[in-house]
Design a protein around this nucleic acid. Structure first.
Lengths: 131, 131
DNA sequence: CAGAATCCGGTCCGATACTG
DNA sequence: CAGTATCGGACCGGATTCTG
């Protein structure tokens, strides 16, 4: 492991930083939702789209393509008409569940405080604008 | 804790979902870097900007403002000329270090595989375009 | 059914210039 | 020193339409 790879923050912004790569992967709108749903087992494209809810086909395709590209999800197309395509987590993808569960744990414990701070901050800023 | 608040994935996209709020907070370009730097102690604005490297004043201000709004960072302005402003993690902000460390741990163990998959996927896609 | 193609608005971010 | 104001480019994601 290089010093660079070990650096949480190193110095300067580095798109190659491992933590950065993960955050970029996981920070988008649908990825974590999709991983969560696939945790229960393989799913077909349309089932996934309906389960996620509110995602367009184009964007779900892009999300899945990116997950597949990174080796987190496997895509299996059955040569039928109409087509049948199944998506499933890989071992690597499943290994992500633990860190994500930790994030979830922190969120459930602390997000209420964040939201409260947010409201108070906005209220205070609002007052300043009023006078 | 409501069922909704407990749901990792619940059903459908929910901007209020605790995990979602956290991901949105932490998924942007500079936040994690800033938190990492502030872990060593309070820092002044310019010191922070120089340490982060590559961030514009405007964006760093926005990042810090958002962190302050959420109660993760404290802003202290000393009434001097020239001004002196210090930023420090709050207890809430410090509590984020642990989950972030978990993310970092996963990244350092697995990102190499992700990058490898990525390269292989792109290579395979490239071949398909060639013929 | 599982997408690809296109268009389009909103947001993120950087660069620059200015100020108390 | 620590910002604010303004502009512009890039990217993300949504809606719609079309296809094997």
């Amino acid at each position: 492991m290089t010093t660079e790879a070990a650096g949480w923050v190193g110095n300067g912004y580095d798109p190659q930083c491992p933590t950065r790569v993960l955050l970029d992967r996981v920070g988008d709108k649908w990825t974590v939702l999709v991983i969560g749903l696939l945790s229960d087992g393989p799913m077909r494209f349309t089932t996934l789209r309906d389960s996620v809810g509110g995602v367009s086909g184009k964007v779900l395709t892009a999300t899945l393509r990116a997950l597949e590209r990174d080796g987190l999800v496997n895509r299996t197309a059955y040569p039928q008409i109409p087509p049948r395509v199944e998506y499933a987590l890989t071992d690597l993808g499943r290994s992500l569940q633990e860190p994500l569960a930790v994030l979830r744990g922190w969120s459930e414990q602390h997000i209420a405080q964040v939201v409260a701070h947010r409201a108070e901050f906005d209220r205070a800023a609002g007052i300043r604008l009023q006078f």
